[in-house]
Nucleic acid binder design. Structure first.
Ligand SMILES: [Zn+2]
Length: 292
DNA sequence: CTCGTCACCTGAGCGC
DNA sequence: TGCGCTCAGGTGACGA
């Protein structure tokens, strides 16, 4: 899935294209995506998206008329792609999700796993493509939305994520440190890539438990969570090497990756090799020499 | 509480 | 070519 920096990049991209455009219809192409009543989707006709927010790794669409919130979680392979509707081959705009190799020519025929199409009256449209079909769309009323958001941890780039708060949630826990970073009920937004990168930057072994960290290490970890996520957002995510935004800029964090996906390659900080193991159910990349 | 495992799905890559 | 296996950016349920 896109992790926090990717979702933030998607949010920014989409906000430039789909806000305050009159919605024609939402065409559900895979009932796996949305389990609610399809009639609720039809009710959005002639409404408009008024705002797009990010909640952890999910996108939250608000409407001009409807009180409901539309939540889209892209999970592992979901993509949101905007098409202007004028020239399918040239004016498509990858506004989100993982880009795949050879996908820089965004002809719609390249998207083989369409799950949703949101059509606007000006003939532009947004598609949701998702190979593995883990992505979901939910339409929630305010109460349901607050229930969902209430279960999530703090936003790491918000004011609420203070050092003292971080130290507090680390207290009295024996959880594995990587499992802690991945657990969305403590701090949202980190996934497998950034957890590995943040632990490397902090010179902390992914095998450590939370209660083994001293104060200095906790501070370093805290600072790196913010630093790495901010840098990744600045680079517009790890998975956007083919992405070109409205200004024609492309960017990617993948060139900055230190350990993720670099098994067997030379560590960027020492002369050792990047190792890989399975930890808390996930492939985990680390440098055994640099991280203790 | 914390961990491991499985499930949800599909496709890519690799060894044979 | 094809088969079987492992792996993949996420998350939730279940049992030890
Ligand atoms: Zn190293």
């Amino acid at each position: 899935m896109p992790e926090l920096p990717e979702v933030e990049t998607i949010r920014n991209g989409l906000s430039r294209f789909v806000l305050f455009k009159e919605i024609k219809k939402l065409v559900l192409l895979d009932t796996n995506l949305f389990k609610g009543a399809e009639n609720d989707l039809l009710k959005l006709r002639k409404d408009e998206f008024s705002q797009i927010d990010r909640l952890g790794k999910a996108l939250v669409f608000s409407f001009k008329k409807s009180e409901k919130k539309m939540i889209i979680h892209l999970k592992m392979t979901g993509q949101l792609v905007y098409f202007s509707g004028k020239n399918l081959k040239e004016q498509a705009m990858l506004a989100g999700g993982h880009s795949e190799k050879g996908q820089n020519n965004l002809d719609i025929s390249k998207f083989k796993h369409l799950r949703l199409r949101i059509e606007f009256f000006d003939n532009s449209f947004l598609i949701l493509n998702d190979t593995r079909r883990f992505a979901y769309l939910k339409l929630l009323n305010i109460k349901e939305f607050e229930e969902v958001s209430g279960k999530l941890g703090v936003e790491p780039l918000s004011k609420g994520f203070s050092l003292s708060y971080f130290l507090k949630i680390l207290e009295k826990r024996k959880k594995n440190i990587k499992a802690f970073l991945l657990d969305q009920s403590f701090v949202v937004g980190m996934g497998n890539i950034y957890a590995d990168e943040i632990l490397f930057a902090s010179k902390l072994s992914p095998f450590r438990s939370v209660d083994s960290l001293d104060l200095k290490q906790k501070k370093v970890l805290y600072n790196n969570i913010k630093k790495i996520l901010k840098l990744a957002i600045k680079k517009r995510g790890t998975t956007f090497s083919d992405y070109v935004d409205a200004d024609g800029k492309s960017g990617n964090f993948s060139s900055v990756l230190k350990v993720y996906g670099r098994k067997g390659q030379k560590c960027r900080s020492c002369n050792g090799l990047v190792g890989k193991t399975k930890l808390v159910g996930r492939g985990t990349h680390y440098c055994p020499k640099c991280q203790n």
